[in-house]
Design a protein around this nucleic acid. Sequence first.
DNA 1: TACTGTGAAACGGTTCACAGCC
DNA 2: GGCTGTGAACCGTTTCACAGTA
Lengths: 222, 222
Amino acid sequence: MSPDKQTSQPFDPRGVPKVVVSRMSLYLRELQHLVRDGRATISSSQLGQLLGFTDAQVRKDLAYFGHFGHPGIGYRCEELIVEIRRILGTDREWIVTMVGVGNLGRALLRYKGFAAQGFRIVAAFDSDPRIIGATIEGIPILGLERLAETVRQRQVQLGLITVPASEAQQVADQLVAAGIAGIVNFAPVTLSLPAEVSVVGVDLATELEQLAFSVANRTNSR
Amino acid sequence: MSPDKQTSQPFDPRGVPKVVVSRMSLYLRELQHLVRDGRATISSSQLGQLLGFTDAQVRKDLAYFGHFGHPGIGYRCEELIVEIRRILGTDREWIVTMVGVGNLGRALLRYKGFAAQGFRIVAAFDSDPRIIGATIEGIPILGLERLAETVRQRQVQLGLITVPASEAQQVADQLVAAGIAGIVNFAPVTLSLPAEVSVVGVDLATELEQLAFSVANRTNSR
DNA sequence: TACTGTGAAACGGTTCACAGCC
DNA sequence: GGCTGTGAACCGTTTCACAGTA
């Protein structure tokens, strides 16, 4: 009914298939490697080859968002990195929090790859009094009762859920109540949440199942 | 040209879309929750509702693999769990190894969810002499030089790569040379491997980027 | 020449709608 | 009445093929 609301983006995000967005992340990652290796430009067919896509797919994907290529030359790596970061929204810093400082939570707090892409974890929460008050990689571990207050004060936008499956839904509800905009859920449950909150689910056992299927059936996947 | 090779499966795995297989994992997960809650049967529309799919999609997905439903009744949860585990290949045990016992590796070694779905990690490898010889959750940490020997002796089928990006390709090559059939790659690089080896990539920063895009554009995804 | 951007065609997955069954 | 399984219609994504540009 009512058309797009006004944003600063020169593209209509509703017209972009989800799988295109996930490939944008892969293009970005590959371009970052290329730049580190001193590469200045790359053609759609070369980039496609590195990732296992066709040249046409690379060009179509990028064309959803603008005209970034240079006929006869290809794409300039640095330039395209800037564009894709702007598209994904990682040209600015995102304020992130984590709930559940168990093994997986601790590992993710120590992971350097988030900060490298512009995600800053400002606090983590747990209910275990033995770790509340501690600090991991400079990130304070707080009691769950301080979740809502912290999310509001520090303007936290994204949350990582790394609690056991049995607690994930209620933790998610608390994050939503506190005003968070998006969640990455590492617990092996499907969360039920209001439509205005974005959710990405990552289930490690599920990934192994996909692999098992593809090995058991010699269907070569990716 | 030459048609299917003979397997014990009553379905043709080549005819099954990859996304259907990934939904099978979600059905399985949900059914396991339902059984724990004492539920005996479920209809396609109820199961779909829990996961955010339509009833037709649930039925079509399951029908790729056989006739598991009971008209007028729905699907019997226990029965369907058995079928899906057989389809995914998780009705038997998979022998798994891990290379890279850093923060993420350690967290995954301690994660109980793999064993619960039939994945048994029998050994882990690292190059750091300070942890070689140690044991985590009963899993021995060995030096990389023993990788090939161990994979062959213990009949390891699947490998988890949890080393830094810069080492992932060479580790993958070693796993392949040792005869592994499938890899889950947690390093943020695209591996280039022979077609007969299945690969699933999990990139945590990439997942956050998907979330950032969807929040930045209020495109509600999943 | 080397490459992009893009309509049009081809493909594949999803939804619809209903026959068949309990 | 309630529910599955499935052909057919629909819709979105990928591939093709080429006009346009440096």
